[in-house]
Amino acid sequence: MRDFTWHVFKQTGDIEAYLLYREMHNLGAAELGHAPGTEEDEGNVADEE
C-alpha cells in the first residue's frame, strides 16, 4: 500500500497522497520500534550549519 501511495504522488503530485505515504511510513517505523520521523536519509539539522 505504501508503494502505491508513493506511485500516486509521483504521478500526480497530490500532497494528500504524500501525506498518507508519510503517515504509513511513520506507523511502520513505530511497529519496528523506531521513533517516527527519524530516518537516516532525512539529515540532521545540526549538519546544516
Rank of each mutant, 00 (worst) to 15 (best):
G28R: 05
N44F: 15
I15P: 00
Y18C: 00
D41G: 07
G43Q: 09
Y21G: 00
D47E: 10
A30M: 06
E39D: 14
D14S: 10
N26H: 09
D14K: 09
D14N: 13
H25Q: 10
F4K: 06
L20V: 06
H34I: 02
F9P: 00
Y18L: 09
A46C: 11
M24E: 05
E48T: 10
P36Q: 07
M24R: 04
W6Q: 09
L32H: 04
G37D: 05
E31R: 12
N44C: 10
G43N: 08
A46G: 05
G37Y: 11
G13M: 03
D3S: 11
G13A: 02
H34L: 05
L32N: 02
T5Q: 03
L27V: 05
D14G: 02
V45S: 15
H7C: 03
W6D: 03
Y18H: 03
G33C: 01
E39Q: 12
V8M: 06
R2Q: 15
A35F: 09
E49Y: 12
G28E: 04
A46Q: 13
F4S: 05
E23A: 06
G37H: 07
P36K: 09
E16M: 07
K10N: 08
P36I: 07
E31A: 07
E23K: 07
E23L: 07
T38V: 14
D41P: 02
A29N: 07
M24D: 01
Y21W: 08
V8G: 00
T5I: 01
E42I: 14
H34R: 06
Q11N: 13
E39S: 14
A46V: 14
A35E: 05
W6E: 06
T38G: 02
L27H: 09
G28C: 01
D14C: 07
E16A: 10
H34W: 11
A29D: 12
L32P: 00
E48H: 11
T5P: 00
L20Y: 05
V45W: 15
V8S: 02
E31P: 00
E39T: 13
Y18I: 01
D47H: 09
L20C: 03
R22K: 11
F9W: 11
E42H: 14
G13Q: 02
H25D: 04
D47R: 10
H7Y: 10
G33E: 04
E40N: 07
P36S: 08
E40L: 13
G28I: 02
D41A: 12
L32G: 01
D3E: 13
Y18G: 00
E16C: 01
E48A: 13
M1C: 11
G43S: 08
Q11L: 12
E23M: 03
Y21F: 09
F4D: 07
T12H: 08
L32T: 01
E48V: 10
G28W: 06
L19R: 10
D14E: 10
Y21Q: 01
F9T: 01
L20D: 05
H34G: 01
A30T: 10
G37W: 10
I15N: 02
E40R: 12
E48S: 11
A46T: 14
R22L: 09
V8A: 02
T5D: 04
G13D: 03
E49W: 11
H7E: 08
N26Q: 06
P36W: 11
D14Q: 09
A35N: 05
